[in-house]
Write a protein that binds this DNA or RNA. Structure first.
Length: 426
RNA sequence: GGAGAGGUGGCCGAGUGGUCGAAGGCGCGCCCCUGCUAAGGGCGUAGGCGGGUAACUGUCUCGAGGGUUCGAAUCCCUUCCUCUCCGCCA
């Protein structure tokens, strides 16, 4: 959501920003709509001013028992009522048209976001560890899982359809261990507050984080008109909706382990094998709420928190700066962490860490009082820290052994009751 | 699901058709007094949009959205939320 005043003051910058997104400039259209709206409001205000003054006099006249004067005044303002009503109706329509336009616009990108059309134009920012050299042909996670008898896509599809999985035994516990490890890391080392929040949310919440109105087809909707969260970014970010925070309580940092539900509309045929792209998956999410001048450093900090998860697991990864064409609509800058997957012989996204600026805060009416007591919109950030389903894949593929068993990373062993590997037995 | 009661400023809480954007309190800010650990006094203190260099000023906002009225925090309708009792239930 944008500040129309800012667009009025910086129309070229605004249009240039949209063009970097591959969208058309909208400043002229917005300003024209806003001009019309302003003219209506101005006229309306004049009528209301007259009406209010007269009404006050009528009240005084009646209080003094001067019925004659009251009647005379009443006659004077008789036609104002319909004018005001029409003016209000016009303003309503004009405001709605303007807001609908604004609500559908993507966020502007930060200067340092690389230009580009799609993921092939993303730019590597850093890299951790070298891919392990295998003295056998590494398998993909679903081969390993199925051979272990602990990962079952067939029965899942009978129960729920495609893009679901059933995990059992050691693999199931491994995913649980990953979630525990990540949550503990973020809460004890990184200063995040653990949260359990609703998985079903109302439309307003999805609008607040920007999934609505444009991306409704990506999420599942319930028959009672709620939505399954596509990410707990929604629940966690909306924790501050419609609130007035004080500058002392910032930054706020929340983390949560939740299932995420995505319809994956439009990704038919992509990653259909295995559990890389599912309708339901677990993810540890991090959300931060900061003062505007702190959000960029928080972005780097949050990336560090996600990287710490990967370093702890000792899984090779690279950090990518997403290019303009590959970025989500609500964000100003995004860093992806891509884990090395030996079975696929490539890096795949496992975490996405983004700064939204005040884009979401404006939609949610999330503000704080700065040091001078002035209300300001907060900045919001979110990042996966990390997707446990994909982390499971990464652990399985990177820690696989020649006999098809899977070694358990050191940091996870305490969460696995001391178990050091997953084999067909357990 | 049934019956009832409510939603007011950063917070609490008055206010049932006119001078109410809203008493009072808390909190916060500035100032003063006192003088010693605990208090007293004064003033100020919502947000959005618009006009003005500014002082200031117009308008809107009392959960949200409609409506009645010359005029709505106050009346009507819809909706969301909270609380109490009953029912159901992990």
């Amino acid at each position: 959501m944008f500040d129309v005043k800012w667009i009025r003051a910086n129309p070229e910058a605004f249009d240039a920003g949209l063009e970097r997104r591959g969208a058309e400039g909208q400043s002229q259209k917005i300003i024209t709509l806003d001009d019309a709206r302003k003219a209506t409001v101005q006229q309306l205000n004049e009528w209301q001013e007259t009406r209010n003054a007269s009404s006050k006099q009528i009240g005084q006249a009646k209080a003094q028992g001067d019925e004659e004067k009251a009647q005379a005044l009443l006659a004077q303002v008789a036609d104002l009522k319909s004018k005001v009503q029409q003016g209000e109706e016009t303003e309503r329509l004009q405001t709605a048209e303007l807001n609908d336009l604004l609500a559908g616009l993507p966020n502007l990108l930060l200067e340092d976001v690389p230009a580009g059309a799609d993921e092939n134009d993303n730019v590597e920012k850093s890299r951790f560890a070298e891919p392990r050299q295998f003295n056998f042909e590494p398998k993909e996670h679903y081969e390993l899982g199925e051979q272990l008898g602990q990962m079952d896509f067939e029965i899942a599809s009978k129960i729920a359809g495609s893009r679901f999985v059933v995990l059992k035994n050691g693999i199931a516990r491994l995913e649980r261990a990953l979630g525990q490890y990540m949550l503990d890391l973020h809460t004890t080392e990184h200063g995040f507050t653990e949260v359990i929040a609703p998985l079903l949310v109302r439309s307003e919440a999805l609008f607040g984080t920007g999934q609505l109105p444009k991306f409704s087809e990506d999420a599942f909707r319930t028959t009672d008109d709620r939505w399954l969260i596509p990410t707990s970014e929604v629940s966690l970010t909306n924790l501050v909706r419609e609130s007035m925070l004080s500058h002392e309580e910032l930054p706020l940092r929340f983390t949560s382990l939740t299932p995420c539900f995505r319809s994956e509309a439009g990704s038919a045929g992509r990653d259909t094998r295995g559990m890389l792209r599912q309708h339901q998956f677990y993810k540890v999410e991090m959300v931060a709420v900061t003062a505007p001048d702190k959000s960029l450093e928080e972005h780097e900090r949050m990336l560090g928190c996600a990287e710490a998860v990967m370093k702890g697991l000792d899984i090779p990864y690279r950090v990518m700066r997403l290019c303009a064409g590959d970025m989500g609509a609500t964000m100003m800058r995004t860093f992806d962490i891509e884990a090395w997957l030996p079975g696929q012989n490539t890096y795949r996204e496992i975490s996405s860490v983004s700064v939204a600026g005040d884009y979401q805060a404006r939609r949610m009416e999330a503000r704080y009082r700065d040091e001078n007591g002035k209300p300001q919109y907060v900045h919001t950030l979110n990042g996966s820290g990390v997707a446990t389903g994909r982390a499971l894949i990464a652990v399985m593929e990177n820690y696989q052994q020649e006999d098809g068993s899977i070694a358990i990373p050191k940091v996870l062993q305490p969460y696995m009751g001391g178990q050091t590997e997953i084999s067909a037995a357990k």
